[in-house]
């Protein structure tokens, strides 16, 4: 099957559900019959460190090198900025606006760039950008962790993926317990609406 290759790099903070979101997106792609590979880095990353994952359509390598990602999804703005090196210049960036500062920042021993600076820096190199208050959207849907799914909704609604939010919704329904699925479907919808707003 000939498919236009697409590489998505995802980044977030341990415990945010970055890997859950990655797997869900991979399942959505598989539901649409697309050749999909995803990759993730575990281990030390889980103790509050950075969690990075990848999703590739039409390609086999689970790893994305600098300048190779068509799409960058950041579940935390500082991590979006840190991962910008992976974005192909002119690529698409979708990110949460809501920060989870590292311990050094939250305890006042270091500073971290503000959202305006992050958005400015991203705008310099990205062709498409989308910024969403993901945790708030998640909370609105019923759980802060569902914020990731809101970001998936926004990305799927933007048209950069070879499938729409309907495929993500199907993957949620097929893979989650009804109660949790309901929250995530709501978050997905909020993300889709946010992207259209």
């Amino acid at each position: 099957m000939s498919v236009t290759p697409l590489r998505i790099f995802m980044t977030g903070v341990g415990g945010q559900g970055t890997l859950t979101a990655t797997t869900l997106l991979a399942k959505a792609a598989l539901l649409r019959g697309l050749p999909v590979t995803s990759g993730e880095i575990h281990g030390m990353a889980q103790r509050g460190g950075v969690v990075e994952s990848t999703l590739l359509i039409g390609l086999k390598s689970p790893k994305i090198g600098p300048g190779e990602a068509d799409v960058l999804m950041g579940f935390e703005p500082l991590e979006t900025l840190r991962a910008l090196i992976y974005l192909k210049p002119g690529g698409a960036v979708f990110s949460s606006t809501e920060s989870t500062p590292p311990l050094s920042v939250s305890t006042g021993q270091a500073t971290c760039p503000g959202l305006v600076d992050v958005e400015g820096r991203v705008a310099e190199v990205a062709g498409i950008t989308g910024w969403y208050p993901c945790q708030s959207l998640g909370l609105q849907a019923g759980a802060a962790q569902a914020g990731n799914i809101a970001l998936l909704g926004a990305v799927a609604a933007s048209g950069v993926l070879p499938f729409g939010p309907d495929a993500v919704a199907e993957a949620i329904t097929a893979n989650m317990k009804p109660k949790i699925a309901a929250i995530n479907l709501k978050a997905l919808e909020l993300g889709v609406e946010a992207a259209k707003a």
């Binding site: 509050g48 600098p66 090196i85």
Partner: peptide, 19 residues
Amino acid sequence: VRPVNPPEEGLPMRPPNLC
């Protein structure tokens, strides 16, 4: 020729930590 965005300098690190 593979243009790459320069790495962001001076960002605070996020090392894994005891919970």
